[in-house]
Each structure stands twice: as structure tokens, then as C-alpha cells.
């Protein structure tokens, strides 16, 4: 009886697995999400990304200075 029960569960699990695999595309499965490799960045891309990063840092520093000046002007 116990063996029959285990067997029945195995069949159900296999059916369920097959059904899930039928419903989902292969790369939608949780276990299949790590197949994308690193992009080879061109020189232009690196310059663009660094330029944008420098832009953000500079702007943040300038805003920080402005906040500092505003706070000191008020005190």
C-alpha cells in the first residue's frame, strides 16, 4: 500500500513537472536563469558609462555644496 502511494505520487509529480515545462518557456524556469554572459564593452561604451558616472558624482557634489551653503546662510 505504501509503495503504491509513493508510486502514485511520483507519477503525479512527473505529470506536474511535464505540465509546468509545457506551460513555461525553458528560460522562465527558476532553475534556468543564469545563461547570459558578460557583454564585451567597447571603448566607446566604457567612455560613455564613465562619463555618466562622473556626471552624477559631480552633480551630487554640487548639490551637496548648495545644501551646505543654504544651511550656513540660514544659521
Amino acid at each position: 500500500m505504501k509503495n503504491n502511494s509513493v508510486y502514485a505520487n511520483d507519477i503525479a509529480t512527473q505529470q506536474s513537472e511535464a505540465w509546468v515545462r509545457e506551460m513555461l518557456e525553458p528560460d522562465q524556469l527558476s532553475s534556468a536563469k543564469h545563461t547570459v554572459g558578460l557583454l564585451k564593452l567597447t571603448g566607446k561604451m566604457v567612455v560613455l558609462l564613465w562619463g555618466l558616472r562622473v556626471y552624477v558624482v559631480l552633480m551630487v557634489v554640487m548639490i551637496g555644496l548648495q545644501i551646505w551653503n543654504t544651511l550656513h546662510a540660514g544659521s
Binding site: T13, Q14, S16, E17, W19, V20, R21, M23, L24, Q28, L29, S30, S31
Partner: peptide, 15 residues
Amino acid sequence: ATPGGITPEDIKRAR
């Protein structure tokens, strides 16, 4: 998860 690696997340999404 089933022995084949199907997770509850997969099952809900499959539904």
C-alpha cells in the same frame, strides 16, 4: 520543489 527542480514559483506562474 519536484525532483526535476520545479519550484512553487514555477507552478504558480505556469497556472
